[in-house]
Amino acid sequence: MMQSTEVLIIRHGQTDWNATKRLQGHSDTPLNEKGIGQALALADTLREEKLEAIFSSDLQRALRTAEEIAKWHNLPVTVDPAFRERSYGAFEGLSRDEIKTRYPESHAAWYAADPDHVFPPGERIAESIRAFHHRAIEAIQRIARPYASKKIVLIAHFGIIESAYRVAHDMPLEVRSRVPVLNTSINRFRVCENRIELIAWGDDGHLEPQQKPADYLKHF
């Protein structure tokens, strides 16, 4: 019987674009003051966990979060662009209302969860849901293989975590996910070859109550 890897997949700390509900995608936005505090609290919470490796998206909001964890464990952060958020093309930097006004057809396809729709290009070319999902899952499975029976951490983005959640719940790409993912909440998965199982979801005990406003749960 093949042994599984426990993978903690954690969203980065808050950025100003998170706070104002603007899509970030590949845009390289930094943590804001609150996000730095969240990263420090997360790192403190994980300091007693026995970790074998720390992985991160190469975007600075994830990398800064990962670096705070690494300080407690004397481990390097392995940076991998495969863990970037989905590329949203022209949608990046815009709010939901701005997208709806400027790109009504693409906005409708987005909310209909069309897995093959590609948003208009912006500074970068956008990815479809399907293309992004395959990128995310392949990368998660790839980093898990060398760490059978051990525990690793991945600091990434909402979309990466949502992709793992979909696989764990056998959720089709055509179904729009409405699961909230708070900044720096801890999500534990068991990964073994092509299987991804959810162990525990959304541990946010390290966050102060005022860091979890009710309207934040009204995610895109």
Score class of each variant (00 low, 15 high):
M1L: 06
V7I: 10
V7K: 07
V7R: 04
R11N: 10
H12W: 12
G13D: 12
T15D: 02
D16G: 09
D16A: 11
W17L: 06
W17A: 05
N18K: 05
N18F: 09
T20S: 12
K21L: 07
L23S: 05
H26V: 03
H26K: 05
S27P: 04
T29F: 00
P30V: 00
N32D: 13
K34Y: 04
G35S: 06
G37E: 14
A41T: 08
D44K: 15
L46Y: 13
E49V: 10
K50I: 12
L51R: 11
E52W: 06
E52Y: 07
S56R: 06
S56D: 07
S57Y: 03
D58L: 03
D58V: 05
D58M: 05
Q60F: 03
A66S: 10
E68D: 05
W72T: 07
H73D: 01
H73I: 02
V77D: 11
V79F: 08
V79M: 07
P81Y: 07
A82R: 15
F83P: 01
R86W: 00
S87T: 05
Y88M: 00
G89M: 02
A90D: 04
A90I: 15
F91Q: 00
E92G: 02
L94Q: 09
S95L: 01
S95A: 06
R96T: 14
I99N: 03
I99E: 02
P104G: 00
W110I: 02
W110P: 13
Y111W: 15
A112D: 14
A113V: 06
D114N: 15
F119V: 01
F119Q: 02
P120D: 05
G122N: 05
G122L: 00
E123M: 08
I125Q: 14
A126P: 11
E127Y: 00
S128F: 07
S128V: 06
F132Y: 14
H133T: 09
H134D: 11
A136T: 08
I140F: 10
I143H: 07
Y147F: 15
A148R: 15
V153P: 08
L154G: 03
I155H: 07
H157C: 00
F158M: 11
F158G: 14
F158Q: 12
A164M: 09
A164W: 09
A164G: 11
Y165R: 09
A168L: 06
L173N: 01
V175C: 09
R178C: 06
V181G: 03
I186C: 03
R188W: 12
V191A: 01
V191F: 04
L198Y: 07
A200N: 12
A200T: 13
W201E: 05
W201I: 06
G202M: 02
G202P: 08
D204Y: 14
G205N: 14
E208D: 10
Q211T: 12
Q211Y: 09
K212E: 09
K212A: 02
P213D: 01
L217I: 05
H219M: 14
